[in-house]
Design a protein around this nucleic acid. Structure first.
Lengths: 207, 207
DNA sequence: TGTACATCAGTGAACGCGCGTTCACTGATGTAC
DNA sequence: TGTACATCAGTGAACGCGCGTTCACTGATGTAC
């Protein structure tokens, strides 16, 4: 409603539509998003959307793409912030996953819950792979500290962490459907990763 | 189409509608489910649905409820099958989670992805709590084997396992949106739980 | 500095569709006598 | 065993709605001269 539109031409309708879509996706869940509603929220006729997107799916996909872009940045930043310690870098990426889901719920839903395939667009596939790559790099660095003979493939334990992070977000960090837990999602993830890393022999038992 | 309907009266329309709903939810995703379509698939007019359910949401909720019922049974069975070893029982429940998601995808989606609140019905809340209870019991048994001073709350580590299981299902066991992994979900979950339990000191490092 | 014109972003009306839901009805079933 | 009747599961037509999408259009902008 309080949109800045200077007269007939909007100025930056494309991004305004994406922002509206993200807000709607966040508020009404995936599927609860309507192209017409996004248009209305941007102060524009539904038909105007087609000047910027080929249709509904394209709009959602672009929202997801921007999400992956932010996500990749956030993960990379976390990774860098933990350097040169492989352990600190890895733990930071774990925390960053949850932080991202909290800070950008609309993007998160568009990326992981909207049913949009990551292969919808080459662009999308590329940036998604990049985001995944950061975590895999962090896992790989860390696995160097494990004796080779008992070292699991790095892509395997990055998958474990990704899964636990995703699970914590879905089950405990959403307005979740009744699945309350007495623990804050942040603590849950932190401690879960801690136990896991201890299991890999990367944290001393007495830490 | 190949429905057994003996003339005007259907015989068991209520369950036929639920089954149709489950099939549709599985095939078209949550939200892709239409009451009218479920009716058609059961060989019946949409209006007939209202003889058995108060509406669309009620039908989905009932599908979810039946899912939780099966789920609770499956978990309980797994738990029992591992007894008297607390460790075996716990690991079996972890495996059962994924097995359930694979075997009853429609139920799983109705339960965890359809957006139906677990508090939609007292019935639903109760049976969902029962299912969760099995895993918590298994976690509690197991935590008895951890020295008290370094024992985490049982509800915490059952949450960890639930999260990892859920994450593996969502990310790797669905027709997943491009997030392929070189590992079978079963192996991923098995090894993830293994590392985690080692981290708790419940499996010897040389196992 | 002013005018003519090309460009193109957004309008407004209309469309066909599938949806969930309602309503008065009718046909089948089972039970009382 | 046969008939009258109550019950109620399912019909069929209709509704209002919001959706995504299309189309010919018009108003604003910027540029060439």
């Amino acid at each position: 409603m309080a949109e800045k539109k200077q007269g007939y031409h909007h100025g930056n309708l494309r991004q305004a539509l994406i922002d509206a879509a993200l807000q709607l996706i966040e508020k009404k869940g995936p599927g609860g998003f309507a192209l017409s509603e996004a248009a209305k929220q941007a102060g524009v006729t539904p038909a105007a959307v087609y000047r910027h997107f080929s249709g509904r799916d394209d709009l959602i996909a672009e929202a997801a793409r921007q999400g992956y872009e932010i996500f990749a940045d956030v993960m990379q930043f976390a990774y860098d912030s933990g350097q040169p310690s492989a352990l600190a870098a890895f733990e930071a990426t774990g925390r960053a996953y949850l932080a991202f889901a909290r800070k950008y719920p609309g993007h998160y839903i568009a990326m992981f819950e909207s049913g949009i395939s990551v292969n919808h667009t080459p662009d999308l596939a590329l940036i998604a792979a990049k985001a995944r790559g950061v975590l895999e790099k962090a896992a790989d660095d860390l696995s160097q500290h494990i004796p080779p003979e008992k070292r699991p493939p790095a892509s395997m334990f990055s998958a474990h962490i990704w899964a636990m992070s995703h699970g914590v977000v879905e089950l405990y960090a959403r307005n979740s459907p009744g699945t309350q837990s007495p623990f804050a999602p942040e603590d849950l993830l932190e401690s879960g990763i801690g136990v896991y890393l201890r299991g890999l022999g990367l944290i001393r038992p007495d830490d």
